[in-house]
């Protein structure tokens, strides 16, 4: 028995569209991270008074945004891999799809980005 080759999310093997919906959810999340990252990098330019900002601390202010951008790219890649797993599960009926490590990592990065944004807010606006 040859297993169908699963390459692209346009191939939809299950009637509930699980694989496609999950793929799109990851892509949306990746795009959100990238957009927030760009926004944070942009806003970090307005932070504080340049006189008081050493180069190092300016780098620190840009970091949350860079983190968001990088995470966005990784998440979109992950979405494609996840699509392949989900489509395979749909075809073979295999369970055991949960990915605690990816979920934990994503939650941790989101928290870091949010805390970084909070610090930008505190240092920049007042």
């Amino acid at each position: 028995m040859t297993r169908p080759r699963l390459g692209h999310p346009s191939e939809i093997p299950d009637p509930g569209l699980q694989s496609e919906r999950t793929y799109l959810a990851w892509q949306r999340t990746g795009l959100s991270f990238a957009a927030v990252g760009v926004f944070l990098v942009h806003e970090s330019g307005h932070v504080g008074h340049p006189k008081h900002l050493e180069q190092l601390s300016h780098l620190a202010v840009v970091l949350p945004g860079i983190l968001g951008l990088t995470t966005g790219a990784l998440i979109m890649l992950r979405g494609l891999l996840r699509y392949r797993q989900a489509a395979t599960a749909a075809l073979t009926g295999a369970d055991g799809m949960s990915a605690p490590t990816a979920v934990a990592a994503l939650a941790a990065v989101a928290t870091l980005v949010a805390v970084g944004g909070f610090l930008i807010l505190l240092t920049g606006a007042f």
Partner: peptide, 26 residues
Amino acid sequence: YRFTLANERTFLAWIRTALALLAGGI
């Protein structure tokens, strides 16, 4: 596997909500 994926998508939706609140707040 469908329940697992549904839980995962819900988690992702909460993460996006958190990101939207962050962007809105800043």
